[in-house]
Design a protein around this nucleic acid. Structure first.
Lengths: 158, 158
DNA sequence: TGTGAAAAGGCGCAAAC
DNA sequence: GTTTGCGCCTTTTCACA
């Protein structure tokens, strides 16, 4: 619980790597993929989980099959940069399920967000009725994506 | 198996919603969260999985704890747009573990990619020795992110 | 389709080595 | 780190409304 565990050997990394690809792998299966027996492997998994390296396990759904055809990147600039403005804006963004990502940027633009909706009409709805309703938005440039070449949750552990 | 299943009722959606948040939920647990008993719930899960709504289950790791401090969006423009160029470029991108996302864009820029590395030096390495080694890159604008406000894998099923 | 129960197997988990 | 083992829970199925 108070385990610092600030150093990972190559077996730990391999375990994490495999779990990034398939969270259903049991301790038993993982064990022989990394060349270990169950118990020590199970212990490592637990340590990794309790130390917070593994945040959660989730199901990834098929966006197209669910009828979510539109993905848009939006560059946003706020007109006012007070601490309260930023916090309010970010809280609102986190609350929008259509916004899957939001990052603050160094340089010109303040934020980049990625929005997912069913179609162009519903994107327009989101934009006008949700996003642009937020105060202090100076600029919001929408960049519609066409094809998803890669969209991974695997962090590079090389 | 040959089930088309092109219509999901609100229970299916709720199951998917819950699995998007926690892939470890058992059929039993899911059952009483959606107000059903185990068997029909289990059947729905199977249908959803076999119909491809659930693509995979993965572990999400802690980027910061793993020492991956740098996230950069790169806008890329190619100098030549032949079919072969695009395919070669995309194949290379998919092969780079540092690139977690890659989308083609409508409008000016051809691609946007999200790159994750350990630090600025390793990003520079990636840029010079990997990305800019690819042929036909006309322009690559790096936009370094500062803070991760939101980074979700949950598709909006509302 | 949803309900209830029930078999079988695997897995988490821990103890001893 | 290894091997062994117990008990639980999960998945999976079957008869029935």
């Amino acid at each position: 619980m108070t385990d610092t565990l600030d150093t990972l050997d190559h077996i730990d990394r391999k375990i994490l790597q495999l779990l990034q690809q398939d969270a259903n792998l049991s301790a038993t299966e993982l064990a022989d993929r990394v060349g270990l027996s169950q118990s020590p492997c199970w212990r490592r998994i637990n340590r990794l989980q309790q130390a917070g390296y593994i945040r959660r396990k989730v199901a990834l759904l098929d966006r197209q099959k669910l009828g979510l055809g539109i993905v848009v990147f939006v560059n946003i600039k706020l007109s006012s940069h007070g601490w309260n403005m930023l916090n309010e804006f970010e809280a609102a963004i986190v609350g929008f399920p259509e916004v899957m990502e939001c990052w603050t940027m160094s340089g010109g633009m303040d934020y980049i967000i990625r929005v997912v909706t069913k179609d162009i009409e519903s994107y327009e709805q989101f934009l006008r009725r949700r996003l642009l309703q937020l105060p202090h938005i100076q600029e919001a440039q929408s960049h519609i994506t066409m094809t998803e070449v890669k969209n991974s949750t695997e962090l590079p552990l090389g």
